[in-house]
Simulated scan of single mutants.
Amino acid sequence: MRKRLRMSRLTGDDLFDKPDYALVGIVKIPELEKSPARAIGRRVLWALLALLLCSLVVYIDRSGYRDAKGTTLSYLDALYYSAVTLSTTGYGDITPITESARLINVLFITPLRVLFLIVLIGTTLEVLTERSRQAIKIQNWRNRVRNHTVVIGYGTKGRTATAAVLADGVRPSEVVVVDEDQAALDVAAAHGLVTVRGDATKSDVLRLAGVQHAAALVIAANRDDTAVMVTLTARELNPRAKIVVSIRESENTHLMRQSGANSVVVSSETAGRLLGIATITPSVVEVVEDLLSPEEGYAIAEREVEPSETGGSPAHTRDLVLGVVRDGTLYRVGDSHVEEIEEGDRLLYVRQGGRA
Protein backbone atom coordinates (compact mmCIF):
# COMPACT_ATOMS: atom_id res chain seq x y z
CA MET A 1 0.00 0.00 0.00
CA ARG A 2 2.78 2.46 0.92
CA LYS A 3 4.68 1.55 -2.27
CA ARG A 4 1.62 2.37 -4.36
CA LEU A 5 1.28 5.63 -2.45
CA ARG A 6 4.89 6.61 -3.19
CA MET A 7 4.42 5.79 -6.87
CA SER A 8 1.32 7.98 -7.06
CA ARG A 9 3.35 10.91 -5.74
CA LEU A 10 5.98 10.51 -8.45
CA THR A 11 3.57 10.56 -11.38
CA GLY A 12 2.38 13.76 -13.03
CA ASP A 13 3.29 17.39 -12.47
CA ASP A 14 3.31 18.97 -9.05
CA LEU A 15 0.21 21.16 -9.03
CA PHE A 16 1.19 22.90 -5.81
CA ASP A 17 4.26 24.52 -7.42
CA LYS A 18 2.47 25.69 -10.56
CA PRO A 19 1.84 29.43 -11.01
CA ASP A 20 -1.60 30.67 -10.00
CA TYR A 21 -2.77 31.30 -13.58
CA ALA A 22 -2.15 27.61 -14.38
CA LEU A 23 -4.55 26.59 -11.60
CA VAL A 24 -7.57 28.31 -13.15
CA GLY A 25 -10.05 25.53 -13.84
CA ILE A 26 -8.49 23.30 -11.17
CA VAL A 27 -9.10 25.56 -8.17
CA LYS A 28 -12.34 27.53 -8.17
CA ILE A 29 -13.03 30.33 -5.74
CA PRO A 30 -16.80 30.96 -5.43
CA GLU A 31 -18.29 34.38 -5.99
CA LEU A 32 -21.73 35.85 -5.55
CA GLU A 33 -24.30 34.96 -8.17
CA LYS A 34 -25.16 37.84 -10.48
CA SER A 35 -28.45 38.17 -12.31
CA PRO A 36 -27.81 38.49 -16.08
CA ALA A 37 -30.75 40.88 -16.46
CA ARG A 38 -29.47 43.04 -13.61
CA ALA A 39 -25.93 43.08 -15.02
CA ILE A 40 -27.16 44.10 -18.49
CA GLY A 41 -29.52 46.70 -17.01
CA ARG A 42 -26.69 48.22 -15.00
CA ARG A 43 -24.51 48.54 -18.12
CA VAL A 44 -27.33 50.12 -20.10
CA LEU A 45 -27.95 52.59 -17.26
CA TRP A 46 -24.28 53.61 -17.19
CA ALA A 47 -24.33 54.06 -20.97
CA LEU A 48 -27.42 56.27 -20.77
CA LEU A 49 -25.86 58.34 -17.99
CA ALA A 50 -22.72 58.85 -20.07
CA LEU A 51 -24.85 59.87 -23.04
CA LEU A 52 -26.89 62.29 -20.93
CA LEU A 53 -23.80 63.84 -19.36
CA CYS A 54 -22.14 64.26 -22.73
CA SER A 55 -25.24 65.90 -24.23
CA LEU A 56 -25.46 68.37 -21.33
CA VAL A 57 -21.81 69.37 -21.76
CA VAL A 58 -22.26 69.87 -25.51
CA TYR A 59 -25.49 71.83 -25.02
CA ILE A 60 -23.91 74.14 -22.45
CA ASP A 61 -21.04 74.81 -24.86
CA ARG A 62 -23.30 74.86 -27.98
CA SER A 63 -21.90 78.18 -29.14
CA GLY A 64 -18.62 76.44 -29.89
CA TYR A 65 -20.20 73.99 -32.34
CA ARG A 66 -21.25 74.41 -35.94
CA ASP A 67 -24.21 72.70 -37.52
CA ALA A 68 -24.12 71.82 -41.22
CA LYS A 69 -27.42 73.72 -41.58
CA GLY A 70 -25.92 76.80 -39.97
CA THR A 71 -28.47 76.91 -37.15
CA THR A 72 -27.87 77.11 -33.41
CA LEU A 73 -27.72 73.72 -31.68
CA SER A 74 -30.83 72.65 -29.79
CA TYR A 75 -30.71 70.10 -26.98
CA LEU A 76 -31.89 67.47 -29.47
CA ASP A 77 -28.94 68.38 -31.70
CA ALA A 78 -26.61 68.06 -28.69
CA LEU A 79 -28.12 64.66 -27.85
CA TYR A 80 -27.76 63.56 -31.48
CA TYR A 81 -24.13 64.72 -31.61
CA SER A 82 -23.39 62.91 -28.33
CA ALA A 83 -24.93 59.66 -29.58
CA VAL A 84 -22.99 59.57 -32.86
CA THR A 85 -19.79 60.71 -31.13
CA LEU A 86 -19.86 58.22 -28.26
CA SER A 87 -20.67 55.38 -30.63
CA THR A 88 -17.71 56.53 -32.84
CA THR A 89 -20.03 56.93 -35.84
CA GLY A 90 -19.23 60.62 -36.35
CA TYR A 91 -21.19 61.82 -39.40
CA GLY A 92 -19.49 65.21 -39.29
CA ASP A 93 -22.65 67.30 -39.69
CA ILE A 94 -22.02 68.84 -36.26
CA THR A 95 -18.45 69.76 -35.41
CA PRO A 96 -16.62 71.74 -32.71
CA ILE A 97 -15.12 74.88 -34.22
CA THR A 98 -13.82 76.87 -31.25
CA GLU A 99 -10.69 76.02 -29.28
CA SER A 100 -12.65 75.67 -26.02
CA ALA A 101 -15.09 73.24 -27.62
CA ARG A 102 -12.27 71.15 -29.05
CA LEU A 103 -10.45 71.17 -25.69
CA ILE A 104 -13.61 69.92 -23.97
CA ASN A 105 -13.82 67.18 -26.64
CA VAL A 106 -10.29 66.06 -25.87
CA LEU A 107 -10.50 66.24 -22.09
CA PHE A 108 -14.13 65.26 -21.51
CA ILE A 109 -15.94 63.81 -24.52
CA THR A 110 -13.16 61.38 -25.45
CA PRO A 111 -12.99 59.74 -21.96
CA LEU A 112 -16.79 59.47 -22.05
CA ARG A 113 -16.54 57.78 -25.44
CA VAL A 114 -14.09 55.24 -24.03
CA LEU A 115 -16.33 54.67 -21.00
CA PHE A 116 -19.35 54.27 -23.27
CA LEU A 117 -17.60 51.61 -25.37
CA ILE A 118 -16.31 49.80 -22.29
CA VAL A 119 -19.84 49.63 -20.89
CA LEU A 120 -21.25 48.31 -24.16
CA ILE A 121 -18.59 45.63 -24.61
CA GLY A 122 -18.27 44.94 -20.91
CA THR A 123 -19.36 41.31 -21.30
CA THR A 124 -16.54 40.60 -23.73
CA LEU A 125 -14.00 42.31 -21.51
CA GLU A 126 -15.30 40.41 -18.51
CA VAL A 127 -14.75 37.11 -20.29
CA LEU A 128 -11.25 38.16 -21.36
CA THR A 129 -10.29 39.20 -17.83
CA GLU A 130 -11.98 36.29 -16.01
CA ARG A 131 -8.84 34.15 -16.11
CA SER A 132 -6.72 36.94 -14.61
CA ARG A 133 -9.35 37.64 -11.95
CA GLN A 134 -9.51 33.97 -10.99
CA ALA A 135 -5.70 33.77 -10.81
CA ILE A 136 -5.59 36.75 -8.45
CA LYS A 137 -8.37 35.26 -6.29
CA ILE A 138 -6.55 31.92 -6.16
CA GLN A 139 -3.33 33.65 -5.09
CA ASN A 140 -5.09 35.60 -2.34
CA TRP A 141 -6.91 32.49 -1.14
CA ARG A 142 -3.73 30.39 -0.98
CA ASN A 143 -1.99 33.10 1.04
CA ARG A 144 -4.69 33.34 3.71
CA VAL A 145 -6.30 29.88 3.96
CA ARG A 146 -5.68 28.47 7.43
CA ASN A 147 -7.53 26.25 9.94
CA HIS A 148 -10.16 25.27 7.38
CA THR A 149 -11.98 22.02 6.70
CA VAL A 150 -11.15 19.86 3.68
CA VAL A 151 -13.80 17.46 2.37
CA ILE A 152 -12.50 14.66 0.16
CA GLY A 153 -15.29 13.39 -2.09
CA TYR A 154 -18.53 15.26 -2.67
CA GLY A 155 -20.91 12.37 -3.11
CA THR A 156 -23.86 11.69 -0.84
CA LYS A 157 -21.69 11.26 2.25
CA GLY A 158 -19.50 14.23 1.44
CA ARG A 159 -22.46 16.55 0.83
CA THR A 160 -24.17 15.46 4.04
CA ALA A 161 -20.97 15.88 6.05
CA THR A 162 -20.45 19.34 4.57
CA ALA A 163 -24.01 20.33 5.45
CA ALA A 164 -23.39 19.24 9.05
CA VAL A 165 -20.15 21.25 9.20
CA LEU A 166 -21.89 24.36 7.88
CA ALA A 167 -24.80 23.87 10.27
CA ASP A 168 -22.29 23.86 13.11
CA GLY A 169 -21.27 27.43 12.32
CA VAL A 170 -18.41 26.99 9.83
CA ARG A 171 -18.52 29.51 6.97
CA PRO A 172 -18.66 28.20 3.38
CA SER A 173 -15.42 30.02 2.58
CA GLU A 174 -13.69 27.87 5.22
CA VAL A 175 -14.58 24.59 3.49
CA VAL A 176 -12.59 23.16 0.55
CA VAL A 177 -13.98 20.29 -1.51
CA VAL A 178 -11.66 17.94 -3.43
CA ASP A 179 -13.11 15.67 -6.10
CA GLU A 180 -12.40 14.47 -9.63
CA ASP A 181 -16.02 14.80 -10.76
CA GLN A 182 -16.57 18.26 -12.24
CA ALA A 183 -20.36 17.95 -11.88
CA ALA A 184 -19.99 17.37 -8.12
CA LEU A 185 -17.60 20.32 -7.87
CA ASP A 186 -20.08 22.55 -9.69
CA VAL A 187 -22.70 21.68 -7.07
CA ALA A 188 -20.23 22.51 -4.29
CA ALA A 189 -19.27 25.81 -5.93
CA ALA A 190 -22.94 26.73 -6.24
CA HIS A 191 -23.13 26.49 -2.43
CA GLY A 192 -20.21 28.90 -2.02
CA LEU A 193 -17.50 26.31 -1.35
CA VAL A 194 -13.94 26.46 -2.65
CA THR A 195 -13.27 23.50 -4.94
CA VAL A 196 -10.15 21.69 -6.13
CA ARG A 197 -10.33 19.22 -9.02
CA GLY A 198 -7.91 16.32 -8.79
CA ASP A 199 -6.99 12.92 -7.35
CA ALA A 200 -6.88 13.24 -3.56
CA THR A 201 -4.44 10.32 -3.25
CA LYS A 202 -1.74 12.62 -4.65
CA SER A 203 0.08 14.86 -2.21
CA ASP A 204 0.24 17.83 -4.61
CA VAL A 205 -3.55 17.91 -4.88
CA LEU A 206 -3.93 17.81 -1.10
CA ARG A 207 -1.34 20.54 -0.66
CA LEU A 208 -3.20 22.60 -3.24
CA ALA A 209 -6.29 22.25 -1.04
CA GLY A 210 -4.24 23.51 1.91
CA VAL A 211 -4.30 20.24 3.88
CA GLN A 212 -0.99 21.17 5.52
CA HIS A 213 -2.77 24.13 7.16
CA ALA A 214 -6.20 22.53 7.69
CA ALA A 215 -7.85 22.02 11.07
CA ALA A 216 -9.93 19.04 9.96
CA LEU A 217 -10.35 16.60 7.08
CA VAL A 218 -13.46 14.68 6.15
CA ILE A 219 -12.61 11.74 3.89
CA ALA A 220 -15.70 10.36 2.15
CA ALA A 221 -14.13 8.33 -0.65
CA ASN A 222 -16.06 5.66 -2.55
CA ARG A 223 -13.47 2.95 -1.85
CA ASP A 224 -11.80 1.93 1.39
CA ASP A 225 -8.35 1.52 -0.19
CA THR A 226 -8.62 5.05 -1.57
CA ALA A 227 -9.55 6.30 1.89
CA VAL A 228 -6.45 4.61 3.34
CA MET A 229 -4.13 6.24 0.79
CA VAL A 230 -5.69 9.67 1.28
CA THR A 231 -5.42 9.33 5.07
CA LEU A 232 -1.75 8.30 4.91
CA THR A 233 -0.87 11.23 2.66
CA ALA A 234 -2.91 13.74 4.66
CA ARG A 235 -1.44 12.62 7.98
CA GLU A 236 2.07 12.97 6.58
CA LEU A 237 1.31 16.50 5.41
CA ASN A 238 -0.42 17.55 8.62
CA PRO A 239 0.30 15.61 11.83
CA ARG A 240 -2.07 17.82 13.88
CA ALA A 241 -5.26 17.85 11.81
CA LYS A 242 -8.35 15.99 12.93
CA ILE A 243 -9.07 13.34 10.29
CA VAL A 244 -12.51 11.74 10.08
CA VAL A 245 -12.97 8.90 7.60
CA SER A 246 -15.99 7.02 6.29
CA ILE A 247 -15.46 3.41 5.20
CA ARG A 248 -17.71 0.61 4.01
CA GLU A 249 -16.27 -2.42 5.81
CA SER A 250 -15.61 -2.59 9.56
CA GLU A 251 -12.61 -4.90 9.02
CA ASN A 252 -10.71 -1.90 7.67
CA THR A 253 -11.24 0.17 10.82
CA HIS A 254 -7.93 -0.77 12.42
CA LEU A 255 -6.12 -0.06 9.16
CA MET A 256 -7.65 3.42 9.02
CA ARG A 257 -6.60 4.17 12.59
CA GLN A 258 -3.08 2.94 11.88
CA SER A 259 -3.03 5.24 8.86
CA GLY A 260 -3.70 8.23 11.10
CA ALA A 261 -7.48 8.64 11.25
CA ASN A 262 -8.86 10.11 14.48
CA SER A 263 -12.40 8.88 13.91
CA VAL A 264 -13.73 6.14 11.65
CA VAL A 265 -17.37 5.80 10.65
CA VAL A 266 -18.49 2.48 9.15
CA SER A 267 -21.32 3.58 6.89
CA SER A 268 -22.69 0.16 5.91
CA GLU A 269 -22.85 -1.23 9.47
CA THR A 270 -24.27 1.99 10.90
CA ALA A 271 -27.05 2.05 8.31
CA GLY A 272 -27.74 -1.66 8.81
CA ARG A 273 -27.90 -1.27 12.58
CA LEU A 274 -30.43 1.57 12.26
CA LEU A 275 -32.50 -0.50 9.84
CA GLY A 276 -32.61 -3.37 12.31
CA ILE A 277 -33.54 -1.11 15.22
CA ALA A 278 -36.27 0.55 13.16
CA THR A 279 -38.10 -2.76 12.74
CA ILE A 280 -38.42 -3.14 16.51
CA THR A 281 -38.27 0.35 18.03
CA PRO A 282 -38.67 2.97 15.26
CA SER A 283 -38.86 5.77 17.82
CA VAL A 284 -35.20 5.13 18.71
CA VAL A 285 -34.23 5.81 15.09
CA GLU A 286 -36.23 9.03 15.18
CA VAL A 287 -34.28 10.16 18.26
CA VAL A 288 -30.98 9.30 16.59
CA GLU A 289 -31.98 11.26 13.49
CA ASP A 290 -33.02 14.14 15.73
CA LEU A 291 -29.60 14.15 17.40
CA LEU A 292 -27.90 14.16 13.99
CA SER A 293 -29.89 17.20 12.82
CA PRO A 294 -28.39 20.26 14.55
CA GLU A 295 -30.95 22.70 13.15
CA GLU A 296 -33.92 21.28 15.03
CA GLY A 297 -34.83 19.17 18.07
CA TYR A 298 -31.78 18.11 20.07
CA ALA A 299 -28.14 17.78 19.08
CA ILE A 300 -24.92 16.42 20.57
CA ALA A 301 -22.28 19.08 21.20
CA GLU A 302 -19.03 19.58 23.07
CA ARG A 303 -18.08 22.41 25.39
CA GLU A 304 -15.45 23.45 27.90
CA VAL A 305 -15.91 22.83 31.60
CA GLU A 306 -17.08 25.83 33.60
CA PRO A 307 -15.07 26.77 36.72
CA SER A 308 -18.06 26.05 38.97
CA GLU A 309 -18.27 22.47 37.61
CA THR A 310 -14.68 21.53 38.48
CA GLY A 311 -14.56 18.81 41.14
CA GLY A 312 -18.18 17.83 40.66
CA SER A 313 -19.74 14.81 39.02
CA PRO A 314 -20.56 14.86 35.28
CA ALA A 315 -24.04 13.63 36.16
CA HIS A 316 -24.76 16.73 38.26
CA THR A 317 -24.13 19.46 35.67
CA ARG A 318 -26.83 21.70 34.20
CA ASP A 319 -26.68 19.72 30.91
CA LEU A 320 -27.30 16.10 30.09
CA VAL A 321 -23.67 14.93 29.83
CA LEU A 322 -22.90 11.80 27.81
CA GLY A 323 -19.15 11.72 28.17
CA VAL A 324 -15.99 13.54 29.21
CA VAL A 325 -13.05 14.18 26.89
CA ARG A 326 -9.80 14.19 28.88
CA ASP A 327 -6.38 14.40 27.21
CA GLY A 328 -7.95 13.50 23.89
CA THR A 329 -9.68 10.36 25.22
CA LEU A 330 -13.45 10.00 25.53
CA TYR A 331 -14.80 8.49 28.75
CA ARG A 332 -18.48 7.64 29.19
CA VAL A 333 -20.35 9.01 32.16
CA GLY A 334 -20.00 6.49 34.98
CA ASP A 335 -16.43 5.56 34.09
CA SER A 336 -14.17 5.55 37.15
CA HIS A 337 -11.65 7.80 35.37
CA VAL A 338 -14.09 10.70 35.29
CA GLU A 339 -15.98 10.47 38.57
CA GLU A 340 -14.88 14.07 39.13
CA ILE A 341 -14.59 16.79 36.50
CA GLU A 342 -11.10 18.27 36.19
CA GLU A 343 -9.94 21.58 34.79
CA GLY A 344 -9.23 21.24 31.07
CA ASP A 345 -11.87 18.55 30.49
CA ARG A 346 -14.47 18.93 27.75
CA LEU A 347 -18.03 17.74 28.15
CA LEU A 348 -19.99 15.90 25.50
CA TYR A 349 -23.61 16.85 26.12
CA VAL A 350 -27.09 17.08 24.61
CA ARG A 351 -28.24 20.58 23.71
CA GLN A 352 -31.26 22.14 22.09
CA GLY A 353 -30.91 22.09 18.29
CA GLY A 354 -30.04 25.44 16.73
CA ARG A 355 -28.54 26.78 20.00
CA ALA A 356 -24.80 27.49 20.05
Rank of each mutant, 00 (worst) to 15 (best):
P96C: 05
I247E: 02
V265E: 05
H337N: 15
T71D: 11
L217Q: 02
G90Y: 04
D335T: 03
G323K: 01
V228E: 02
T124A: 15
L347V: 03
A220S: 08
S74E: 07
Y59M: 05
L322M: 11
S82N: 02
V57L: 10
A215L: 11
T72M: 10
G353K: 02
E180P: 01
S55G: 03
D13Y: 10
G260K: 02
A135I: 02
T310R: 11
S308W: 06
L322G: 01
E340I: 12
R235W: 04
G210L: 03
A184K: 14
A78H: 03
L237S: 03
L128D: 01
V288E: 08
L347P: 00
D224P: 08
V325Y: 02
R42Y: 09
L291E: 02
R346Q: 06
N105G: 13
A261N: 07
E286F: 09
D290M: 14
D225M: 08
T149H: 06
A209Y: 02
L52Y: 09
I243N: 02
I60C: 07
Q212H: 13
I26G: 04
E249G: 09
Y59Q: 04
W141V: 12
V218G: 09
L208S: 04
T317C: 08
V187N: 07
P282C: 04
A78M: 03
A163Y: 04
S263I: 12
N105Y: 08
E342A: 14
N147R: 14
I280L: 09
D179Q: 07
I40F: 14
D290F: 07
G312H: 04
M1A: 13
R351H: 07
S87I: 05
I121R: 10
V196D: 00
A234I: 03
D61S: 10
V321Q: 00
T160K: 14
Y154T: 04
R355D: 10
P282M: 08
F16G: 05
I118Y: 07
D181I: 07
T233L: 04
T253Y: 06
D61Y: 12
V24E: 05
R144N: 10
E269Q: 11
Y65P: 06
V175M: 03
W46I: 15
A315P: 03
S100L: 15
V287R: 13
